[in-house]
Amino acid sequence: MSEARITREGPGRLRLTGPVDTATVPGLLRASRGLLEADGDGALEIDLGGVTRMDSAGVALLLDWQRDAPAGLRYGNPPDQMRAIVDFCGLEDILALA
């Protein structure tokens, strides 16, 4: 089973990889502490291109990050599975997808 990770890719940029689901969300939430605040007032983008699976728990995690980020937050390269959940739940105006 692949491990989910969130890593810093550079100033204002994080990368999320692996499965983002009920099993991995608690660990990702712990691992993300401090990463969202690290860039101060600058906007932050999280690249989702390495996400292999995302369920509704993963979408809830993204909503939590967006709510708690001190500056603008957007998500790049969202997987199709995530877009389907976002569309079904009517979240396209809430989640900032790039």
Results as ranks from 00 to 15, higher is better:
Arg74Cys: 11
Glu45Arg: 15
Leu36Tyr: 06
Gly12His: 01
Ala43Lys: 05
Ala31Asp: 15
Leu16Gly: 04
Gln66Ile: 02
Tyr75Lys: 06
Asp55Cys: 04
Ile46Met: 06
Val51Gly: 07
Val20Thr: 05
Ala38Trp: 08
Ser32Gly: 10
Gly27Phe: 10
Leu35Trp: 06
Thr24Asp: 05
Arg13Pro: 08
Val25Cys: 04
Met54His: 06
Ala57Pro: 06
Arg33Tyr: 11
Leu28Ala: 00
Leu44Ser: 10
Leu44Gly: 09
Leu61Met: 12
Leu63Gln: 08
Gly18Lys: 15
Asp21Glu: 13
Gly10Pro: 02
Val25Phe: 07
Ala43Asp: 13
Leu48Phe: 07
Thr17Asn: 09
Asp55Val: 03
Arg30Pro: 01
Asp47Lys: 11
Arg33Leu: 14
Pro11Gln: 12
Leu35Asn: 10
Val59His: 10
Met54Gln: 05
Ala43Cys: 07
Arg15Val: 01
Val59Cys: 02
Thr7Tyr: 04
Gly42Val: 14
Ala71Asn: 02
Gly42Lys: 13
Val51Thr: 09
Thr17Val: 11
Thr22Lys: 14
Arg53His: 14
Ile46Phe: 05
Pro11Asp: 11
Arg53Cys: 08
Gly76Asp: 12
Ser56Gln: 00
Gly34Ile: 03
Arg33His: 15
Asp68Thr: 13
Gly40Phe: 00
Asp55Met: 02
Gly58Lys: 05
Ser56Ile: 02
Gly76Arg: 14
Arg15Gln: 00
Leu16Asn: 00
Val51His: 07
Arg74Trp: 15
Asp55Trp: 00
Asp47Glu: 08
Arg13Phe: 05
Val59Phe: 11
Trp65Pro: 10
Ala23Arg: 14
Thr24Ala: 04
Pro70Lys: 12
Pro26Asn: 03
Ala23His: 14
Gly58Ile: 02
Leu48Tyr: 04
Ser32Val: 04
Thr17Ile: 06
Leu29Met: 09
Asp64Met: 14
Ile46Asn: 01
Gly49Trp: 06
Thr22Arg: 15
Ser32Gln: 01
Asp47Gly: 08
Arg67Phe: 13
Ser56Tyr: 00
Leu35Arg: 06
Leu28Ser: 01
Val59Trp: 12
Ser56Pro: 02
Asp68Trp: 07
Ala71Trp: 08
Pro26Lys: 00
Glu37Cys: 07
Val20Phe: 01
Asp47Met: 07
Leu61Gln: 09
Ala23Val: 14
Pro26Tyr: 07
Arg53Ile: 07
Asp64His: 15
Ile46Ser: 02
Gly18His: 13
Ile46Gln: 03
Arg30Phe: 07
Ala69Arg: 05
Gly34Asn: 01
Gly10Ala: 06
Gly72Ser: 02
Pro70Tyr: 10
Leu73Thr: 11
Gly58Asp: 00
Glu45Phe: 11
Gly42Asp: 15
Gly10Phe: 03
Met54Gly: 04
Gly76Asn: 09
Asp21Asn: 15
Leu44Trp: 12
Gly42Ser: 15
Val25Ala: 04
Gly40Asn: 02
Arg33Trp: 09
Arg33Phe: 11
